[in-house]
Amino acid sequence: MATIQLKVNQEGRELRDIDPATPLLWALRDHLGLVGTKYGCGKGLCGACTVHINGAAIRSCSMPVSSVAGQSVTTIEGLAPDRQNLHPLQEAWMEHDVPQCGYCQAGQIMNAAALLQSTPSPSDEEIDNAMSGNLCRCGTYTRIRAAIHTAAGKGGAS
């Protein structure tokens, strides 16, 4: 058991009495109560658990919390600067009514946000490639792609 400090959504957090091997996913969900990040497969196959570490998209189910000690984690709850000013991707997701069940969408948005950081105006092919690790069981891919384009057109990298 260990005490681990990290920055989550711009706030310093301390995890006490935690198994350092705990995947970041479960540290976020069970220990910090941030349940927007989802469990889908536990093996980095579905992307539902995607968060940002220092701005890069990673699969939190396969990342021991100890390995991100001292680093900056952004989850879906912290993607927008505040409740009134959502990230352009979140706005685009609502405009296109992307979700069906909605379970994968936090991971999709986090992955797309990282894409727009590196590629502010991605082509269809660039979107398909970047998003290929994020599964949607309901099959909302057409709308996800359209929403990413919409967000990109509105400065989605911001």
Partner: peptide, 21 residues
């Protein structure tokens, strides 16, 4: 008409069975 839960979904609010605490 977009889904009524969309804002909660895209901001990661607890909605699902697995989110219950």
């Amino acid at each position: 008409i977009p889904g009524v839960d969309n804002r909660a979904l895209v901001t990661g609010q607890p909605l699902f069975g697995i989110d219950q605490k």
